[in-house]
Design a protein around this nucleic acid. Structure first.
Lengths: 252, 252
DNA sequence: CGAATAATTGACCGAAATCAATACGGGTGG
DNA sequence: CCACCCGTATTGATTTCGGTCAATTATTCG
């Protein structure tokens, strides 16, 4: 199931073989869902948590006027609703933005881990708090950045996370989102996202086209977005790469 | 130390006498800080977590232009930086808005709880995820609500939380914040907060004056703010009170 | 090829920010 | 006891960023 990716690129030590084994044994099945599926519905009690093997999943709520607002985004290697284990009910939806593959972990087995593997429990706890740290950054983005800065921040954050899992080479990564979805994530309309993206392109900061993000000036983009990746707890090398201060080894 | 308040008014069962005892024994000292103190500084490794006995503490970051942005607010009875236990370093500051009294819990003792008390660990984990749920609502507020609705939502949330701890009678509660701080919490300028508060007063929804919030029409305020308290996991009665559907017993 | 979805561009509008005064209120010290 | 101050609150005039409405052009995919 490749649970190694849970801590890949992080400042913490890797999971031990025993811990990996324990997690693998906790999986009851693998579920495939097509793009657009609401994987977990707001307010419905759940008895299992999902590890995202591949694909992209968004965390969103729908407001009174029917508009969707994204409060989180997840990629392959994320334990996307581990927090449903202590909480039991989610206050938001999880929706597949692409076709996804999900490993299902029943909560009984997580209870077993809680009882028998305190260290692993602490690490799973850590993961849920990493999500909380991202939530705080998403708030920061909304409350204090201009539209161009918000997009810059979002694209830098995503770049940093995807460097950690080896999906981004540091300057270029796939991102299957529409401009409207980018708007849902940054609190902007699709129209304005379009204009702002043009601006970023014209300033030679980055290009987003046909589901690929290409960063021309990472340092500039990070500066515009007031982006510092510390809250992602990445290991020091990746941290530097995410700021554009050093090149990633895989960068051509 | 009155750790009962940790789950007071929540949909979950109360802490057992043993668990209360364990938590009480985990406290190494009680610390008093005057208003304005930065209790925990962003980026500085910490080896203890703080339980807020009394007073108000804000969670904030400072942006490039020096403006402060609030990403959370805590009152007496909240375990304010429990997440520092798995994370080790915070990505934001904790600042005392009033004089505060803090119970200090060294992380070694939390490690002991993690090893020996899986149930209690699960409940502490739950508490940190409650904060995450509030973060999501704060994002929601910023991305989808107008200025009046943001303030309405904020005031309803705070009311709900303070009903749970017995501080609000359902329509009236003390809130030691300036209009500027209200703005930091809702992503608005002090000037605009002032105008919007006047609007809420004129619509007979609520009044905020000399550090007291008085709600004249709770149902209306909740509707304006698109507020639903489900994410706070309050018990059903308090949930209804927080929406203004029933009166709280303590309401005169 | 054609239908649906996504992207792009233009004209206009409006909510909240900004800039700038003024008023209030409650402590402090003369 | 009153005068002074400083932080907070209030109000007005103006600007601006991003939203809304509306239309057109690209893409993608069956």
């Amino acid at each position: 199931m490749n649970f190694e990716r849970l801590f890949q690129g992080r400042r913490t030590e890797a999971l031990s073989p025993v811990e990996l084994e324990v997690l693998n044994n906790a999986v009851s099945q693998v579920r495939e869902c097509p793009a657009g599926t609401v994987v977990v519905k707001q307010g419905v009690p759940v008895h299992e948590s999902l590890y995202l093997v591949s694909g992209t999943v968004s965390r969103n709520v729908v407001d009174a006027s029917g508009r969707r607002h994204m409060m989180g985004l997840h990629f392959g290697g994320d334990f996307i609703d581990l927090h449903a284990f202590p909480l039991r009910v989610l206050d938001h939806n999880l929706a597949a933005l692409t076709d996804v593959s999900l490993a299902v972990v029943p909560h009984e087995r997580l209870t077993g881990i809680l009882k028998d593997y305190p260290d692993l429990t602490g690490r799973l706890w850590f993961l849920t708090l990493l999500d909380a740290a991202m939530h705080r950054q998403w708030s920061f983005r909304l409350s204090s950045l201009s539209a161009p800065a918000r997009l810059a921040h979002f694209l830098c954050e995503t770049n940093a996370r995807l460097i950690a899992t080896g999906v981004s080479d540091g300057r270029r990564y796939p991102l299957s989102m529409t401009q409207a979805e980018l708007g849902e994530a940054c609190g902007l309309t699709n129209v304005h996202v379009n204009r702002v993206l043009r601006g970023l392109r014209e300033q030679r900061l980055c290009t987003f086209r046909s589901s690929v993000v290409e960063i021309h000036d990472l340092e500039g983009l990070a500066a515009l977005g007031e982006f510092t990746p510390d809250y992602l707890y990445l290991d020091e090398t990746i941290n530097q790469q995410a700021l554009g201060l050093i090149r990633s080894p895989s960068y051509g």
